[in-house]
Design a protein around this nucleic acid. Structure first.
Lengths: 339, 339
DNA sequence: GTGGCTGGATGAAACGTTTTAAGCGCTATA
DNA sequence: TATAGCGCTTAAAACGTTTCATCCAGCCAC
């Protein structure tokens, strides 16, 4: 069956195209009898609106995009679910794009999204600095909301969790536990979260000033495998230099470290204590339940989507907002042997 | 800056619209000097193609959709990553839709996708039976590939892992370990995988015929929380009836069971052995490393996307194919105390 | 000098909607 | 009997591309 268009429907129902369009978009402006005839024709022909034509005419699509660093990271999947709720309530559609922490892919996605004239973009950018393609979207008047990045920039809204505070919480806890040789694992530092969590940890350590030291081991990305590799190097150190505690930039890294440590027959937390970040669902179910810094993930997504819709509706009068949530430390056995 | 269109670019470069279009789509058919002038105009005006108009004219979009049961399930995120690779190589774009195991949402998504005239759809349907919206897509000539569902249907391609075999592997293993009271946890049974894994387990048990029994506990969905709830009920049974082993329809359920069992101070595998399904990344890192049936997830996604592109290109001459992969049992401590 | 060919550019049609001004047949009011 | 207003429908323009038939100038072969 060839795809029927509005014209055929009109012919079939013995009305004009305009009327069919009205039935579709403002049903109450057309007489009941006519409306029914049109609806019958629609079902009979199996007519389905052509969204391209619609969008072309409207100049804008009804889809909102979210560009995340990693679709397979439970942190982002939860953010996506939160955003989804809000977007669907608003009758729009959310499409998920995966930059994979690769800024070339991110650029490609943004280009395509601009071509598609999406209604708005939620994004956790790969790099902190300004992204030309992102600026271009904004110039074009497409609302952009930064997710999980507290930008003070005036040109866009943002939602974020205070990563510096999160780093502090983790570090204070480890210091309280008596650790003095501590490592921070994560990377690349071009990812703002990685840098800020570190900054918080470093600041907390400085303020204590009790001679504890913080060693940094940079990873190439934030996956379980990367965590394992980083742990290998750390554990190879002579025991006098080896850190007694590790603070990881996210839970995937932390799980990798945990795997490597136990594989080598060392004990957590006795030999090495571990604190992760994100408190993903699997953290509590890990071999040794993982201490982690919890973030309100779904709420992050919901709020981001709300800000976006708000901006889209209010247009010129919109004032950009920056919402910052507070993280919370969840202590489990991986950093506290009394549990 | 107002969105410049091709007409303005043409005026700016002193050529016709047709020429600009040629520069964009067949650069070699236009004289180098002219081409350069056009390109300059494009960058100067910040021109970006309007995809709606393009699609309208072309009658088809360049996006391919994948509709999954749960974006937060690591099984599907890996399938998505596999599909993504292939789709992007082909210069198309993959959009991810989440049905959330809800058939109304699935329908809504399919409607929108049809309106968008997507180039093809990869889908793990919520229900096994025929989905009218899916049939409609196929009628319209849009290729559909079933993912993780071995449909013998002639009207579409499919990729799947042999779930019956997977169920067998798990059950044979548990029987080998000496278990005689075994439970199967999962649901709803309207999800084909849930039903087939059970069927495999039941068949294996029948063939042995050594008086072992299989109790079924149905869950409302396939999440960690559901696993926990189901485990609560099982563990409340008097110890003479309580199963000594649990085979779970997926790893999320299994992790939930594991959490509940350990929370109650019982031991895995001594008191209850557990086997999961999917072998997600977190299975090996669980409190008690989880035995699980492994599936080639990324390959599933890649193959599905390949079949789709193949069908899209070959058109009428295409013959539908059904690719079935073999699962593999990974035994870890949760079902084998000797490890 | 004519005819044909070629590389390059053009103009117009077409894709399927939505929107807007205008038209039509009525009834109610003056 | 005009006139205004109302409810419904229509025709046509517009959205921004791509494509295709056409055209033109220059060149070569005869």
């Amino acid at each position: 069956m060839a795809a029927a268009n509005i014209k055929e429907v009109a012919r079939h129902a013995g009305v004009s195209v305009g009327t069919v369009s009205n039935v579709l978009n403002r049903p109450d402006t057309v007489a009941p009898a006519t409306r029914q005839r049109v609806l019958d024709a629609i079902t009979e022909l199996g007519y389905v609106r052509n969204d391209s034509a619609r969008q072309l005419r409207a100049g804008q699509s009804r889809t909102i995009a979210i560009v995340v660093l990693d679709v397979a990271n439970p942190f982002f999947t939860d953010v996506v679910r939160g955003a989804e709720q809000v977007v669907e309530e608003a009758g729009a559609m959310l499409i998920v794009c995966n930059s994979g922490e690769d800024s070339a892919r991110e650029r490609r996605h943004l280009e395509l999204l601009e071509e598609q004239r999406v209604r708005g973009v939620l994004i956790t950018p790969v790099h902190h600095g300004s992204q030309p393609n992102l600026e271009k979207l904004i110039d074009r008047g497409i609302p952009v909301v930064l997710v999980d990045r507290g930008s003070g920039r005036a040109s866009r809204c943002s939602v974020a969790v205070d990563d510096v505070l999160g780093g502090r919480l983790a570090m204070d806890h480890l210091l309280d536990q008596g650790h003095r040789r501590i490592a921070y694992l994560g990377g690349p530092f071009s990812i703002a979260q990685v840098a800020e969590r570190h900054a918080g940890a470093a600041a907390a350590l400085d303020e204590r000033g009790d001679g504890a030291e913080l060693r940094v081991a940079t990873t190439t990305n934030l996956t379980v495998a990367a965590g394992r590799r980083a742990a290998e190097n750390l554990l190879a150190l002579p025991s006098r230099q080896r850190p007694t505690a590790v603070f990881c930039a996210n839970d995937l890294i932390a799980l990798g470290v945990l795997q490597e440590v136990t594989t080598r027959g060392m004990r957590v937390p006795a030999d090495v204590a571990i604190v992760g970040y994100d408190d993903i669902e699997f953290a509590g179910a890990a071999a040794v339940p993982l201490s982690s810094v919890r973030q309100p993930r779904e709420q992050l997504g919901r709020t981001a989507a709300q800000l976006l819709l708000e901006e889209d509706e209010s247009g010129e009068t919109h004032r950009h907002r920056h919402v910052v949530f507070q993280p919370e430390l969840v202590v489990r056995r991986s950093s506290d042997h009394t549990r």
